[in-house]
Design a protein around this nucleic acid. Sequence first.
DNA 1: TGACGTCTCTTACGTCGTAAGAATATCGTC
DNA 2: GACGATATTCTTACGACGTAAGAGACGTCA
Lengths: 209, 209
Amino acid sequence: MPRVGLSREKVLAAALALVDREGIAALSMRKLGAELGVEAMTLYYYVPNKDAVLDGLIDMAVSRVTVEPVGPWREWLRAFAVAIRRELLAHPALLPLVATRPVLAPGGLATVERIAAALRAEGFGALEGLQLVNAVATFVVGHTLAEAGRTPGHDEPDVAGVMESLDPGEYPVLAEALRAGLGTPEDHQERFDRALDALLRGLAPRATL
Amino acid sequence: MPRVGLSREKVLAAALALVDREGIAALSMRKLGAELGVEAMTLYYYVPNKDAVLDGLIDMAVSRVTVEPVGPWREWLRAFAVAIRRELLAHPALLPLVATRPVLAPGGLATVERIAAALRAEGFGALEGLQLVNAVATFVVGHTLAEAGRTPGHDEPDVAGVMESLDPGEYPVLAEALRAGLGTPEDHQERFDRALDALLRGLAPRATL
DNA sequence: TGACGTCTCTTACGTCGTAAGAATATCGTC
DNA sequence: GACGATATTCTTACGACGTAAGAGACGTCA
């Protein structure tokens, strides 16, 4: 019953810590309360419901992704993609959330606005630039999703196990790729770089919208 | 108590119907049982747990995506992407699942194997080809995710509402893009086509793996 | 002191996944 | 048709979840 000095921010911070430590499945209002030395229902004074906590987590992550749009647009757009990826890999438990929920909170919108504005200054139309931002963002999210944190729970994906037990007779190409290093960290990094380059290479302002 | 003639397949089919109709959040073992005129626990005779139902749903969807790899590889790879997108849009409730869970079941692996093999015949390395398949697949999933079915529940995403209430002073480019048609079906289609073209245009076999 | 707004707790309801095992239905064999 | 084995279904129960409703405790200012 003594006051603890809570706030929406502290609740979100504790939620992020809990999620980072035990995975998204472990985030329940009761556990989050316990984390803060408080009963579950107390949290409802700072947050309307659990969904708001999840949305808050997303906005925290998205807000941390910032890029200064100076120099050649392909370069800072690439830096934007890399920044997203770094943030996602730092909090892989958030991936299912980011992939699943739209970015509607203030932090995310502000970032999108800034990038889109810079692209328009480069000759893209407003709609065109936004489409570009979206293409890059969804690409990064999709790719990072494939790379890490696939399982919604906290347990490791058993990809490795299944892969190793592949019948080389039935899946010869898969087996060969596995021997060639599929799934290693270097593989993921390289795959990301190559595909991102491909995407950026293929993009250009259309002059007319 | 009379036997109903259930089977794993029928359970999965009912699950898909239920999910299509009421969204992924409405899929509970009890409701799924009711759907089949059976108690919840009965399902556990055909399926080890709920996760297996979800995995089964994914594999059903993925298995339906098939492409004949004949002709120029960029063309049938494009057809592959379009086929994935069509299947996902036909069952948008599955999107959060497909995005979140790895493709490890037989159906998905077989498809991947076939595409990767065809790519190798085009001069890609085994690993390289698989990376390509993965890049295209994650791109499509990411993009479709942004297009539809964002909310995990069955209720419509309130994107439209939030967008309309945007302060044009604070988000001028976003507002302009909105007026230019952001978020319309044509916009999504065009965005998908353009980004996919960009991605494919940027990709090419590297000759050496 | 007392009253008031801020914050926290208790209790309760309906839902979920599923473990354990009892009850029933169906079928092969006599 | 009766009987035992096997395949299928049901009943009951437990602990966890999100959260509605309202009671209670705290700090502050009169």
